[in-house]
């Protein structure tokens, strides 16, 4: 599985010893009226690392995601992708540059087949967007790659089902396969395991670990066991502010974090 995913992206194999920040935000701030939802957040996502964004409900995690992916305009601050300032670009534009997100509520195209869900993602990179005069069979040349992606997440046998007919966990997996079709530099996953059973969690964790070998992953996650097992770095957000960043041990020993989020008695 790993071999296939990496083999499919030649040129991305250059291993740098020093972790390289692919996505970095500085002084990110967003106000809604008078309310400051996100306050001076600095965050970096490193190549080949999994970075978790955690924090209590309403801490502003999803808002940070929306800001980073340009679904919301930051009030102030800068966002850089591979050193390039993307602060004022559109959401579709940053997606084309390789900053791709998933959503908290599973985001598939429900009345398209599983295969078509992935093919839609492949269409634009392969230059098949505006051709209104071509027949649908023009999309058949995407099948091979689409099947490869579905196999990498174990969905190949369900490719003819409508996305709406998949179980919740399988929808999330489909969403990841769709996102991977863009071969993103940075993958932002908003609660990829929320509402999943133990078995699905293990599967998704292994998928995420695989895809992170070759790209930066930033994820919002509530399940602290998953975070501890999976993530290289953790940023804790509270009331829109970063209160700690570091590996799991550093963060979990931080007094402020214990107080604010995990409770003093946590493990």
């Amino acid at each position: 599985m790993t071999g296939m995913l990496t083999a499919a992206v030649p040129g991305r194999h250059v291993q740098t010893r020093e972790p390289r920040a692919v996505l970095s935000a500085r002084g990110l701030r967003r106000e809604f009226g008078g309310f400051v939802a996100v306050k001076d957040v600095n965050i970096d996502a490193y190549h080949a690392q999994i970075h978790a964004l955690i924090g209590p409900n309403g801490a502003g995690k999803t808002t940070v995601f929306n800001l980073l992916t340009k679904f919301l305009e930051p009030t102030s601050g800068t966002i850089r992708l591979d050193g390039r300032d993307i602060t004022r670009l559109s959401a579709a534009r940053v997606a084309r540059m390789g900053l791709v997100r998933s959503f908290q509520i599973s985001a598939t195209f429900p009345h398209l087949s599983v295969l078509d869900n992935v093919r839609v993602a492949l269409q634009r990179p392969r230059g098949l967007g505006y051709q209104f005069w071509l027949s649908l069979s023009a999309l058949d040349r995407l099948n091979e790659r689409a099947l490869e992606l579905l196999e990498s997440v174990g969905l190949q046998d369900e490719r003819h089902k409508l996305a709406a007919d998949l179980s919740y966990g399988r929808k999330r997996v489909l969403e990841i396969a769709t996102t991977l079709a863009l071969d993103p530099k940075v993958l932002l996953l908003d609660e990829p395991m929320a509402g999943m059973g133990q078995e699905d969690i293990a599967r998704v964790a292994s998928i995420i670990r695989n895809v992170a070998q070759d790209r930066a992953v930033l994820m919002v996650e509530h399940n602290l066991k998953v975070v501890a097992d999976l993530c290289d770095r953790i940023t804790v957000l509270q009331r829109g502010e970063v209160i700690a960043t570091g590996d799991y041990v550093t963060v979990s020993e931080n007094e402020q974090v214990k107080l604010a989020y995990m409770g003093t008695g946590y493990e």
Partner: peptide, 19 residues
Amino acid sequence: SPFGMILKSIRENENRAIS
């Protein structure tokens, strides 16, 4: 057509199409 496929995806989930 390929274009029609994108239209359907916008109908199904506009934010996802943007992303």
